[in-house]
Design a protein around this nucleic acid. Sequence first.
RNA 1: GCCCCCAUCGUCUAUCGGUUAGGACACCAGGUUCUCAUCCUGGUAAGCGGGGUUCGAUUCCCCGUGGGGGUGCCA
Length: 500
Amino acid sequence: MTVRTRIAPSPTGAPHIGTAYIALFNYAFAKKNGGQFILRIEDTDQVRSTRASEIAILEALRWIGLPWDEGPDVGGPKGPYRQSERTEIYRQQCDTLVATGKAYPCFCSTERLAALRQQQEADKTRIGYDGLCSHLAADEIRRRIDAGEPHVIRLRTPGQGECVLQDRFRGEIRIPWETIDDQILLKADGFPTYHLANVVDDHLMEISHVIRGEEWISSTPKHLLLYEAFGWTPPVFAHLPLLRNPDKSKLSKRKNPTGILFYRQAGYLPEALLNFLGLMAYSPADGNEMFDLATMASTFDLDRVSLGGPIFDIQKLLAFNGRYIRDLKADALLERLKTWMLNDEVFSKLVPLAQPRLNELSDFVPMISFVFADRLPLDAAALTKGFEDPLRVAELLQVVQWEVERAADWSVDAIKAMFLTIAEKEDIKFKTLLAICFVALTGNTVSLPLFDAMVLMGRDLSLRRVQYAQETLAAAGTVLSGKASKKLMNDYELRYRKES
RNA sequence: GCCCCCAUCGUCUAUCGGUUAGGACACCAGGUUCUCAUCCUGGUAAGCGGGGUUCGAUUCCCCGUGGGGGUGCCA
């Protein structure tokens, strides 16, 4: 049997470090066995998926150095590799399930579902969908569909007994069927959910081993049930432990830089990052901590994967990165610096911004240096200058962080519009808001045009700077209490999201 | 609440019943160096608790405890 693995990211945001981590293990396992590694884009969420995010994901994976044998850009025999281009396949497959009674149409409204969820929450009996539509008579189903009533397709689950699944790392896992409700397979918009698309694609693309995050264990019974319903042989499942924040929670951008592109921008070497990721939940048999991708791919052993959730410790990554940089020959390092940021492409953007502010040529480098830095030395007092209540600054930075995360587009115009919105909603002068941001983003009260600089630094580094500023305030004792944060978030959701 | 997973230094981990429990990052001390960094040497630091199984448990089993994940017309 040919080993085929895949990484299946969802293009709904900045390419995540966790994606690279899972991809690395899939790649290593496939290559160790002379198999193929496939990239599949899971863009079944029409609302959140963007092409920009997809492009960024491919760019990030390419940068970090994990090549795929088949994918949306390079094609392959089992394409297309973008789920939004395969909807007809899912619909057909789903029809066969409905025809055999293994799945059924459900007409329940989202309102009813929300009420049901609320009720179950109150009764402390969370069991999910109650199966109201699972016993509808055939003629009624016909009638309602013909009437054009919106509906979804649900998978019929056993409701009793238990699902016994084999995890490559953990062995047998037993999950009672009664804890698994009738999962939606096809949404009202005709798009499949992850569960359907994932199973259909893994089968059609002949994926032999599904190496994915631990977060998927609890939905594996649904997947197994689907394989059975289709009469297909399921792949081997291997659930890797999740990367964690220092506080042990699932790695999140709130507490860590999680964007792959942040690491590129901050000046990490892709081979160092990859090596470090390969140390998460894994240790090579020879005990040598420093290894390249080819070595990992040729010696990889699933039996050497450990299951405790590893904390993504930037401190150690930094030390690794330093070793990699120091091991470079000087001329090779120079080349790295050029490809990184020190090149004419970047300078040509910077020169026109700096020129009006130059008196001596030697002013140039100090003026632009913040663009090339990771963390800037910051002074809490400079951030809160002119504000009676420093907590107000902490709030504003938090709002800026959220808006930067959600900005649809990363251009000068979009960033300007973003800040105008914030100034208006926060009832604060544009100028006053920007003063804080100048300090946070550039480390100075006077600097190059902020929005241009932010475009050059990229979203991930800009975001990180805002977080550094928040940390600086926190270190000076200006911290939003848990309660205040929560209130701020609710306020934010209401004022920024609902109306826009 | 319910279901599932996990558990060795602060962190990443080695150990696949018998070890002075090893390495790496961080930290501390010393040395090399015009400073600093690098580099070298040394040091502090761990088997969550309780029951079993066994001649012997960090290792196997059970129960607690702790942490994590899931419980979406998100993946």
